[in-house]
Structure formats: C-alpha cells, structure tokens
Nucleic acid binder design. Structure first.
Lengths: 115, 115
DNA sequence: TTTAGTACTATGTGTAACAAGGTACTGTTT
DNA sequence: AAACAGTACCTTGTTACACATAGTACTAAA
C-alpha cells in the first residue's frame, strides 16, 4: 500500500463512526444499505468493518435494532438511534466542525469560500 | 476513556499527518515548535506521537532536516518538505477537501454556509 | 561537577479498520 | 424434495498508528 493510499485510509477511519451514525439518524436502515449510502458518498466501507462497529455502538447504548423480514432473503437488522445516540451524534457533530476548523487553520485554507 | 473522547481521538488521528505537513510547508521548523503550533489549532499532539511520525515521513522521502544550534539547549532538527513532500501535500489537500465533502454529504450539513 | 532545562529517542500497549472466510435463511430450478 | 443462487449477518487474524512512559544526550548556570 502506498503512503498516500494509507494516509487517505487513515483520514477516512477517523470519521466512519460519525458518518454511520449520521446515516442511521435519518431513519431505520440495515447494514447493506448503509454500505450503499457510504459508497454514494465516496466512503468505501466493507462488511468486516461495519458489523463490528454496529455491535460496538449497540453495546454502548447508542443504537438499537429490530428484525424486519425481507421478501428476498433472510430477515434484516434495521438499526435506529437511541436517545443517547442522538445526543451523542450532536456532540460528534460539534467535534467534526471543530476539527474542520482546526485543520483548515493549520492549512490556512478556506475550502468552502464563496465569492 | 469515554466513548466520545475516544472517537474524538480517532478523528484527530486521521488528520495528524496532513496537519503536520501543512505546518512544515510554511517554513523550516523543529519538533517542539510544531507541537506548539498544533496546540494553537487545538490539536494536541505529544512527543511520543510526533517524533516517530517525523521519522516515518523522512524515511518516505517527504521530509528532510538539518541541525541548527540553539542558544538554550541542545541543537535542533529543523524539518522542511522535499519536492516529493510538496506534491504529496497537495494530494493530501485534495483528499481532505473530498473527505469534508463526503462527510458533510452523509450529515447533510453545510458547515461553512455564509448568508 | 552537579543541577536544571531542553531536545531527541525507544518500547510496550490498546484501538479499530480491514481481509478473508464462514454460517444461515429464502426462493427458484430441476 | 434436493440442489443451487442470492442475500444477510458474523468471526478471526493481521496491521497500522497514536499514545503513555521512560530514557539518553547536550548545554549552560550555580
């Protein structure tokens, strides 16, 4: 793996949890669809990453799930945020905004400037 | 360590390399001053993190350094970007901007909107 | 020559993403 | 009904990297 690819992967890693919670916050969703949504946003995540992450978040009380039957295959686990998860997500939102500000300060860049 | 603190730390991890290269790109600087600059930007980094990181970047050909004597203590290693490091930093810049866009897409947020 | 301050270095630990492989359920084809 | 294909969920081992901690080395002042 090249330096660049590795560093890009490192950057992605840090925000996975935040992105996945954000996606779930928009409504009940099951893992395979989360992967699709992430892919749409150009954030590749694989099953071996997602399942343990969801379990970790559930055990932390941030997520809950219920089984819903599918008409094409086995039942699916639909995840949703708990109340704790919602407030946690708000804090991550703040963290993210602060991080963007901090990084842009070191880079002296205004990435989203409008003229 | 709480969930939140841990996740915040994970977010930071991903961008450390980018931030440190950005800081060095503004002119020769030695490690302790890099730590100060990072602290100014609210990105705490400690010696045990910075030194191995600098060594890794140097071994990858992205950084070089020269010894400069100090009038208060031992000599200092002043780091600077190599040409390779400069083009690498540009690529990380692109990566960072794309990441911000991707995260904001999952979050449906425009963090820097001006009215 | 001892002490304090500053700078650089090394080692061990823990977290989390990822690769790879596996299990289980459902509907369709033969 | 048996085999197969498609879908979904889960587990294990590896690797990278930040961090805590401790240690070494150089300089100047007491």
């Amino acid at each position: 793996m090249s330096n660049l690819e590795n560093t890009q992967a490192q950057m992605r890693k840090g925000v996975l949890e935040f992105c996945i919670l954000s996606i779930i916050s928009k409504g009940e969703i099951y893992p395979s669809d989360i992967i699709s949504k992430m892919k749409e946003a150009k954030l590749i995540v694989v099953e071996g990453t997602l399942y343990p992450l969801l379990t970790r978040l559930k055990n932390a009380g941030l997520l809950g799930y219920r089984w819903i039957e599918s008409n094409a295959g086995p039942p699916r686990k639909y995840y949703a945020l708990t109340e704790l998860g919602q407030s946690y997500l708000q804090e991550l939102n703040t963290t993210w905004n602060e991080l963007v500000a901090a990084v842009n300060q070191t880079a002296n860049i205004n990435t989203q400037s409008h003229e």
